[in-house]
Nucleic acid binder design. Structure first.
Lengths: 225, 225
DNA sequence: TTTAATTTTTAGATTTGTCTAAAATAATTT
DNA sequence: AAATTATTTTAGACAAATCTAAAAATTAAA
């Protein structure tokens, strides 16, 4: 299905919103996209025409099977490009989103297949979000708090709940980033500090406040870096 | 200067055409872009408004300094992406143009700077065309026929004048591609055959007909592969 | 349950890029 | 130089995506 850049942006946004609510409504989508309810209403008609949307006027809407399939293709492209920008070009993981927003609309399937191969078929992007595979299935990865990770079991840092500059500085200091392999060696009851081991780094001890904000996958199948 | 995708395509095309003729005219640009003279005429007005064009109605036109600068930025992006697609993703060099046409419109300067670094600051693209640098200066590389390359002097294959499928098969057979380092060891007067050495390949002998279609740079500063 | 507030949709404009057809200008021929 | 031909530009329309303002439908409140 040929989609305009604009249609792709709407589809992706609806996908994101409908993960959180049963029915998506016009205003929330307008808010999310920084546009007007009128524009959304116009686009919904188009997407319904293309049979990508379950949509009753004055009611609410959701992507149908076909719509979800399209959304996952776009999200796959977006996240693969983010991996490229961070792991190959060395860009900061918090600065790649805007560029990936543009790259995601380049839609050659061959390009995306080869990019995926080249990147080693990664399963999560630099923000810790899962990358749908070619067929559109999303790897379901259980995210748990680092504080809940069993001792000496390998985890992969999947997300950080506090993304302030101060927190980023701390994580940088310890060389902890999304995708880092991490293992808990010891926990101190006194203040919740954890002694952890990051791959290719000497063991270090992080405070309870830091640890609380780190989430990991307990899955070994994730590509690490 | 913010330019639409369409404006960028026009600018790039005008740049290409004005390298060949003194004044570019409406019809030839329309032909080149597979569009109508009316559309071209419309766009010319816009580009003149943006002060990228020297343009007198009913006369002819050319990019001015500012226009050329924009064109070189676009061409730089295009050619860097082509290098990426071929040398990193392993795509065929005759199939990357269409994809690069899309990627070239992603305009983050930081992205392009890092991509350039990542690719090792290449000087030519997979078609043998020079890649403008960040400041917009185009490496001037003298292209000579392989048959004119001095004995035992290194050349870099820059272009192939006959791009038929049959020729491609021959070049593939000998592992000769754009960017290949090549050296002439011996020339046979009988039929113009040349014994040549391609880097990391045993020496081989190519016919005069093949040799005639191969062009090289006699410059050592080109990155090879 | 009638009114008020909110949400959603339509109506009508605007912008960008395109087109066809016709008019204007330039170049060639006779 | 007048007529013909070719080229270029304008005029007017259209499609996509957007907007503002007003109308319609729904929901909440009095």
């Amino acid at each position: 299905m040929k989609l305009s850049e604009s249609e792709e942006n709407y589809i992706k946004s609806i996908y994101t919103l409908q993960a959180k609510t049963e029915k998506v409504n016009t205003n929330s989508l307008a808010d999310y996209l920084n546009t007007t309810a009128a524009s959304v209403s116009d686009m919904l008609k188009k997407l319904k025409m293309k049979r990508l949307l379950e949509y009753k006027r004055y009611y609410g809407f959701r992507l149908n099977e076909a719509g979800i399939k399209e959304a996952l293709k776009i999200i796959r492209r977006h996240r693969l490009w983010e991996v490229f920008l961070v792991s190959k070009l060395g860009m900061e993981w918090d600065k790649v989103h805007a560029i990936a927003e543009e790259l995601e609309h380049v839609s050659s399937p061959d390009l995306i297949r080869k990019l995926d191969q080249y990147l080693g078929q990664p399963k999560i992007d630099p923000h810790g979000d899962p990358i749908p595979d070619e067929k559109g299935s999303v790897p379901e990865l259980k995210q748990i708090a680092l504080t809940d990770l069993s001792f000496k079991k390998n985890g992969v840092v999947s997300s950080v709940s506090n993304q302030t500059n101060e927190m980023m500085k701390m994580l940088n200091h310890y060389s902890i980033g999304i995708g880092s392999q991490i293992k808990v060696l010891k926990a101190f009851e006194f203040d919740g500090s954890l002694q952890v081991k990051i791959s290719r780094q000497p063991a270090c001890t992080i405070s309870g406040q830091v640890a609380q904000n780190i989430f990991v996958y307990d899955d070994k199948k994730i590509g690490t870096r």
